[in-house]
Computed example of a mutant assay.
Amino acid sequence: MTESFVIARRFRGPEESGNGGYTAGMVARFVGGDAEVTLRRPPPLERPLTVTRQDRQVLVHDGADLVAEGVPVRLDLAAPDPPTPEEAAEASRSYAGFTRHFFPGCFACGPDRDPGDGLRIFPGWVPGRDLVAAPGRAHPSLPAERGFLATEIAWSFLDCPGAWAMERDQEQRPVVLGRMAARLLDPIPVGTDLLAIGWPLGREGRKLFSGTAVFGPGGTLHGIGRQTWIVLG
């Protein structure tokens, strides 16, 4: 039996393609457990993407075109201590995306999205620390399973904070997700207040590397991620 999934327009990043973290999370569902997903082309919206398996690898195609591939991975990355919720809220007020955003309709970090429609994660720099942070919420309108956020939504929370952590290296150009690995720990209950952070890990030419994490009340670590971003232009 052929497996497939569709990326609804709600879950876009750029206007005509899927949010990278959401897409990677959909692929991770087929991998199971910790996964690393590489995006080979912009994920198309509103049409079935075919899923096939080759040994331990998951391949996603749009017709004959390879869109993404996922593999199991052991993610060995430690998260920094989170700022306080008050520090995250204050940092979010200085979110650079409020004044310049290449993808303002992005499901995860787009300021044009309404509450309950997008995640509205607006990461800003925390004074005295080399990381960005933002508050968030597991809104009841988000896809969930048995009272917990769906895998692809947890991956979405882990996505864009990594891009904004590399804001100083983007040279005023857009970036898109090229590769993402994530480990989900405690499931995120619907309705939970969250705190997302991102921190820089380095650069090689047009490739930027960052880490991300999502925390719940009391500093509970729900998930951690590592991204490779591609600078466009």
Rank of each mutant, 00 (worst) to 15 (best):
G178V: 03
D193E: 13
G191C: 07
L195R: 10
A182K: 12
P200Q: 05
P161S: 08
D169N: 05
T192W: 11
M180A: 04
R183A: 09
V190D: 07
M166E: 06
G198V: 12
G191N: 12
I188D: 12
I197N: 13
R183T: 08
P174N: 12
M180L: 13
L185Y: 06
M166T: 13
G191E: 12
W164A: 03
R168P: 01
L195V: 08
M180Q: 13
Q172D: 14
P187R: 14
D169L: 08
L195S: 06
A181M: 06
V190W: 08
E171D: 14
V175T: 15
R173C: 12
L195F: 14
E171K: 13
L177W: 04
G178I: 02
L201G: 05
P189F: 09
G178P: 11
C160Q: 06
G162I: 06
A181N: 08
E171P: 06
M166G: 07
V176R: 15
L201I: 04
P200G: 05
L177T: 01
W199H: 05
P189I: 00
C160E: 00
P189Y: 15
A163E: 00
R183Q: 10
V175W: 10
P161V: 00
R179Q: 13
P200F: 09
W164K: 00
D186L: 14
D186C: 08
C160D: 00
P174A: 05
L185Q: 10
G162Y: 03
P161E: 06
G198C: 11
L194I: 14
V175A: 14
V175F: 11
E171Q: 15
M166L: 09
P187Y: 05
L184D: 05
L195E: 11
G202I: 03
G191W: 08
T192F: 09
P200W: 12
R168H: 13
M180H: 07
V175N: 07
L177R: 05
L185N: 08
V176S: 15
P187F: 07
R168N: 04
L201K: 15
D169R: 05
C160F: 01
I197A: 15
E171A: 15
L201R: 14
P174W: 11
I197C: 15
P200L: 04
R183V: 07
L185D: 09
C160P: 01
P161F: 04
D159K: 04
A163W: 03
P189C: 14
A163C: 02
L194G: 10
G162M: 00
T192N: 13
D159R: 00
Q170V: 01
G162R: 03
R168K: 14
L195I: 03
P189G: 08
E167C: 07
P161L: 04
D159V: 00
Q170P: 04
A196S: 15
A181K: 10
A181V: 06
D159I: 06
G191Y: 10
D186F: 08
A163Q: 02
V176W: 13
M180V: 02
P161I: 00
I197Y: 12
L177A: 10
C160S: 05
R168C: 01
G198K: 13
D169G: 00
